[in-house]
């Protein structure tokens, strides 16, 4: 036990003031026997309380002394005379002394102190065990969450890496599609590999759409719109349909269409447009 912490807790003061429960008192008494420094501290505390009592000292009336002594009987001051002890005329019930118990403990008291200590210790260990268990459960569920996050990130990273690899190829052209609605931050980017005619569209700067609508990408080839496929808002990267005519495309545009797409673009709902 850390006796300094024990002393600093103030429990000895409460013991001296008689403010502890009988169980707490027994604990303190067991500790007093085990640690002499606690007993020293308690002695000092009691001195402080004596001073407090002393500050309150007050003389009772002088007549009281005779009144009290008339009610008591005393042995003759003869040391040999052990004979019949005269009891006081007033028989009083036993004094109840709350804070101060005899310093010695019998074997039984030692055992009970040990039992109490054991009870506290086992209770504490049980409590600690359940704390550890719940900590382990917490950590396990945290780990699961992190695992999921990690898997998601890995997918994103792989696709980003793929995009980066594609974009860095000299045959990949980048076509910016700028807003046609006046919203400056609305835009899309097309990456087109002019050798393989693979087209990807990067659209995470387009607004969300209601569930019954989708974006549709169009390529303008010789003035005719060609359907490049539909996609939902905020799907960051989409591979699109590919066909050889794309080599002659002059522009790309994205319109908002009913879910599933339209055979012809609804021009008044054009969101972004970019010429090659």
């Amino acid at each position: 036990m850390n006796t300094n912490e024990y002393i600093a807790s103030g429990v000895l003061e409460l013991y001296a003031l008689g403010a502890l429960s009988s169980l707490e008192m027994k604990e303190v008494e067991a500790n007093l026997l085990l640690y002499p420094e606690l007993q020293e501290e308690l002695d000092q505390i009691l001195l402080g309380l004596e001073a407090y009592a002393t500050v309150h000292a007050k003389e009772p009336s002088p007549a009281l002394k005779d009144k009290i002594f008339s009610k008591l009987s005393f042995e003759e001051n003869n040391q040999k005379q052990e004979a019949p002890k005269i009891k006081a005329q007033i028989s009083e019930p036993e004094v109840k002394i709350i804070p101060l118990q005899p310093r010695y403990l019998t074997a039984v008291r030692w055992l009970s102190a040990a039992c109490i200590a054991l009870l506290f210790t086992s209770g504490f260990l049980l409590f600690q065990n359940s704390t550890y268990k719940s900590t382990i459960n917490d950590l396990a569920s945290q780990l699961e969450t992190k695992d999921k996050e990690y898997a998601d990130l890995k997918v994103k990273f792989t696709s980003s890496e793929h995009l980066l690899a594609e974009v860095q190829k000299p045959e990949t052209h980048k076509i910016l599609l700028n807003s046609k609605t006046g919203k400056a931050d609305e835009m899309a980017v097309i990456f087109m590999n002019v050798k393989t005619v693979d087209v990807m569209v990067y659209t995470n700067q387009l607004a969300s759409l209601p569930a019954n609508e989708q974006y549709q990408l169009w390529a303008l080839v010789d003035g005719k719109p060609m359907d490049m496929g539909v996609f939902d808002s905020n799907d960051s990267l989409q591979s699109t349909k590919k066909f050889p005519e794309l080599m002659q495309a002059q522009a790309f545009a994205i319109t908002i269409e009913q879910k599933g797409g339209s055979p012809t673009p609804t021009l008044e709902k054009m969101v972004v447009f970019g010429a090659i």
């Binding site: 429990v11 505390i45 001195l47 402080g48």
Partner: peptide
């Protein structure tokens, strides 16, 4: 507890 301790510590300085 801490207030009881602080108070009695003060009383103890008497001695």
């Amino acid at each position: 507890k801490t207030r009881a301790r602080a108070a009695i510590l003060k009383l103890r300085t008497l001695f």
